[in-house]
Design a protein around this nucleic acid. Sequence first.
DNA 1: CCAGACGTTGCATGTTGTGCAACGCCCATT
DNA 2: AATGGGCGTTGCACAACATGCAACGTCTGG
Lengths: 253, 253
Amino acid sequence: MSQTVDRALSILPLLAQGPADLGQVAERLGVHKSTALRLLRTLHEHGLVHRQQDQRYRLGARLFALAQEAVENLDVRDIAHPYLKELNDECGHTVHLAVREEGEVLYIDKVESRYPVRMYSRIGKPVAITVAAVAKLLLADLPEGERREIAEKLEYPQYTARSTPNAFAFLRELALVREQGWATDLGGHEESINCVGAPIRGADGKVVAAMSVSAPNVVVTREELLTLLPLVRRTAEAISREYSGTGDAPRPA
Amino acid sequence: MSQTVDRALSILPLLAQGPADLGQVAERLGVHKSTALRLLRTLHEHGLVHRQQDQRYRLGARLFALAQEAVENLDVRDIAHPYLKELNDECGHTVHLAVREEGEVLYIDKVESRYPVRMYSRIGKPVAITVAAVAKLLLADLPEGERREIAEKLEYPQYTARSTPNAFAFLRELALVREQGWATDLGGHEESINCVGAPIRGADGKVVAAMSVSAPNVVVTREELLTLLPLVRRTAEAISREYSGTGDAPRPA
DNA sequence: CCAGACGTTGCATGTTGTGCAACGCCCATT
DNA sequence: AATGGGCGTTGCACAACATGCAACGTCTGG
């Protein structure tokens, strides 16, 4: 919509492919050299473009700094919340959002069930890392070495008969979760409570958070809860798209 | 230099701090809302800016993609070569450049000594990973878990009496290298050859390559070679700056 | 020593970006 | 249900600003 800016921005993908000199930039933009020069100068002043000693232009460090700063200031919670609420509207159960922090997995958001029977959890509280669906999702994304290291250092409390018994079983579970792209906790923490969860990924494909839907047996059976899996996964994917800044105009309805 | 582009680019750092709506952008730019709108639209079309469902603007995925593409298409060798040549001009010894690739460390550039006595090495050839200064530099930057894993899988050929004897010694050496920011190989590969090396880092601070200066005892003693350390380190830092696109107008002389 | 290529500068032209004012929309308030 | 305010959006007249041209300076290679 703005010709000047449009031209200037067109330089960036061009330089991303590799260094180029003024003449090449001008030619590929279809403008006069002096025009290209002024655009490059402006980009340069903002640090988006760097001039190497052979006088050619390259993308500059500022671009990386901006990308990094943007990621740091991005709050998954802000972005995810409306989606979690919507999911809760549709299924009625408790919805959790969790992240990994310093070797623990913490709940950072929660939308309460509309059913009278609720499960115990608190925002900011570490989750039962060896059994919770969100914990499995977050750990499953780590490289194999780290997974093993963590799994071996953990304790495996037997909350119920279905709790993950040991590191070996946990690692096998993580491998499964990693492959299938979703996770469950079927009575592993409290005998009567089941969860299904899915991962939320950032622009680089790494898992940055995990969400899950939890419900007690008295409300829905294990099988009924599992029918929600497609919905949960779709929601997680929508949050991922929004979080990573991919795909525009989400649900213009 | 170009007002329109200047204004448009000023939006980016602003959005890096967090999402903002049209009014906020216009105000902080000091322009009319309609102007800000057109700038944002242009940025949006190029994918640098993303609109979330609450209508606010954020930095978009394209920014990350650009940064990533730029890094992938950056060739350390291209950038480093003139510096290596210059270093060789100043000290006369053989200069090497190496990178890590698939668990090996490979020489990717070399400037030959001007002295008649030369050391054996070939571009593209894997280096003696347990003793070479460049190998130590590249491995020392890895996270501790990976260092240990690699060290334990390596073999430790006793090229000379000074070769690294085993994984334990190697890990201790890597820790030292990591801490001091430079590395040596004092007769560990060939009894009569010594090297001093320094790391080359990318925009994110990670070591992307390593360089070293090598010379046989018959030309300079160990101690004399070590006096070159500051020069080697300064050169590596200059390459790092250039490679990461930091700091402008390198050596306008 | 000269020719060519490249980056750079100043300037006159008119294209293009600008601010204004008015509109439409959605949400919150009464 | 009605109303007001906030926000994003649009069309337009004006002139500011980006544009291309031509000329200059510099460096490199023949």
